[in-house]
């Protein structure tokens, strides 16, 4: 969802759900319910505006109050270079999959760019709502020990009492090779 206004016009989010305004045929209640209303029972709980009752002005805003963010308020669109794709894949050890994945990232960044219209001068970044609460400390006691069998049996592969991995400190192969490697994997 990117709020872009071209020459001041507003673009809404793509409508998520169709709004059906058909009136419904009434169906008699099947069985079990002893209801004797003129309208089907569930109709009672349906939303309806009852303006006749109100003797005061509603405090609820009747129209959307958001200000759309214009495209020209945003910084230039970020393009993800192939080098950056490679770097992110190596740092995260998660692959983009295909160009669509890269496009998704670019869209995500574009969405995040909307932050830049907010004035944050002099505002302290907030790590968490607990920033003024002191960290609880625990006593230096051994409480959890010797769960080695419990832990080891969770691992898919192990050697005696060790967890095991292939040799490390070997950089990932080049991107083309990686894509081939992943294609051959189980999923």
């Amino acid at each position: 969802m990117v709020w872009t206004g071209v020459a001041g016009t507003r673009l809404h989010i793509a409508a998520a759900r169709p709004v059906h305004h058909r009136s419904m045929l009434l169906k008699p209640a099947a069985h079990g319910a002893c209801i004797r209303y003129a309208v089907p029972p569930w109709r009672r709980w349906m939303s309806k505006r009852d303006s006749s009752k109100s003797s005061f002005v509603s405090k609820v805003p009747q129209f959307p109050t958001w200000e759309p963010v214009a495209e020209n308020q945003l910084p230039p669109r970020t393009k993800i270079s192939p080098d950056l794709v490679d770097k992110l894949e190596r740092l995260a050890l998660v692959d983009f999959g295909n160009q669509e994945g890269v496009n998704c990232l670019e869209e995500a960044i574009r969405f995040a760019d909307q932050l830049h219209v907010v004035n944050t001068d002099g505002v302290e970044p907030m790590d968490s709502v607990l920033e003024n609460r002191a960290l609880q400390l625990r006593n230096d006691e051994v409480k959890e020990s010797d769960c080695v069998s419990e832990l080891l049996q969770l691992a898919a592969d192990r050697v005696e009492e060790y967890f095991v991995s292939p040799p490390g400190n070997i950089p990932l192969p080049k991107r083309e090779e990686r894509l081939a490697m992943l294609k051959h994997s189980a999923f």
């Binding site: 625990r138 230096d140 006691e141 051994v142 409480k143 959890e144 020990s145 010797d146 769960c147 080695v148 832990l151 080891l152 005696e160 009492e161 060790y162 967890f163």
Partner: peptide, 21 residues
């Protein structure tokens, strides 16, 4: 006696993975 963020013990030599929370 215990680790920085968990309460498993600390010793130099112990059977592998026996001091793991």
């Amino acid at each position: 006696a215990s680790k920085l963020f968990s309460s498993s013990g600390v010793r130099f030599s112990a059977p592998p993975n026996s001091l793991v929370a």
